[in-house]
Design a protein around this nucleic acid. Structure first.
Lengths: 205, 205
DNA sequence: AAAAATAATTAAACACTGTTTAATTTTACA
DNA sequence: TGTAAAATTAAACAGTGTTTAATTATTTTT
């Protein structure tokens, strides 16, 4: 049944084109300010067609959200080559922050925007399988650090959350422009400088 | 000129009523989902009137933003009684996080939402005089810590940013519901537990 | 006190938004 | 080729922020 296959492919292709258009628009003007009509215009279809491929605007957001985590996970692959757990932990921070600074809008989509987390719950945490995966990897790395003598007296889970919070704080304050006013000089560098301070602390634990 | 004074007061009063209505609606349903018509309904005026007191919706947001910083600054006053700098630093973290968890929507408004930071710049950083004030106080506290022998080898400014980032990360991940999926148990406690881990680290520096 | 000027307030419109509906076109299969 | 099914669209609905001109209320001047 080649015809049915081709139809399947066509459908898939249009779905992809919607996602590509939505992504570039979301990253260009933000989710809120991108309208269904904007997306439809860009792919040269009528607005209604989008509702044949996605239940609503949130579902589009959700699909992109998921893609971002896969992207981040791929960047994390290089960490497998870092032998020492503490070095691996620090490298993880660098990968995380580099990803965030190179793709600020995607990071915003994944970790800052509030929009459709309910969606995540409804679809049985699909979108966060990857997000959870990244966090679990952090958790495992910290477990490894403890095994070789670091972080004595700490609770691994709460500590993992704190480490995540620190790198998230560094990038999210920058992305949402909260340090521009408080630190008018060195805006570009402050995130990496802050990370360096964190490394200095980790080196003493 | 009592008449002019009364007119002035009336004008001021209506401005305040708009702000009170806007605040409760913003905190109830979020900024995005609160319409000018909603605000007008609540004060029993027509929508147009709001544009005689505020240039646009952002200017309302801006006014509330400013109020939040004053509120936070007031909560910080108790820190003056904490003698030892490191204790003061930790107490600052607790005040900050308590404020955020007790007023999550206001915190969101102040530190997470992206809306009108341009506005902040246009009005010569008025809204962030208070925000900057809080950061400067953190910076001073860390300077005091260094004076009594803590944080050897650290850059005070970058370190201040990192400390701020950590507490901000702890609360903002929680407020934007990013830990609910990753840490399905202990959602309520994880922020304070994370802060505890941070304190344990500070105690060793 | 009446008329003119000024200010406060509103109704109505504009150009958008997400989403749903019914109608229309295109495609696939008998 | 005709018919059933699918894909696509146009049109409508109820909402949005904002601007405009008109209207009402108040103050000032004559």
């Amino acid at each position: 049944m080649g015809i049915a296959d081709r139809k399947e492919r066509d459908k898939e292709e249009l779905r992809d084109r919607i996602l590509v258009a939505a992504k570039s628009l979301f990253l260009e003007k933000g989710v809120e300010k991108t309208s269904i009509r904007n997306i439809a215009d860009r792919i040269e279809y009528s607005p209604g067609i989008i509702y044949h491929y996605f239940r609503d605007k949130n579902e589009i957001f959700h699909a992109l959200h998921q893609g971002g985590f896969i992207q981040l996970m791929e960047k994390m692959q290089v960490l497998a080559t870092v032998r020492h757990p503490m070095e691996r932990l620090k490298a993880m921070g660098s990968v995380y922050i580099t990803f965030a600074m190179e793709n600020p809008d995607m990071y915003d989509l994944m970790f800052i925007k509030e929009a459709p987390i309910d969606h995540v719950f409804n679809s049985e945490h699909d979108a966060w399988k990857e997000g959870g995966g990244t966090f679990n990897y952090l958790r495992m790395t910290i477990d490894d650090c403890i095994k070789v003598g670091h972080f004595a007296g700490h609770d691994p889970e709460a500590l993992s959350y704190m480490v995540w919070a620190t790198v998230h704080g560094l990038v999210s304050l920058s992305i949402r422009k909260r340090c521009e006013v408080v630190l008018p000089h060195r805006q570009d560098q402050i995130v990496k400088d802050g990370l360096e301070e964190f490394y200095k602390i980790l080196d003493r634990l």
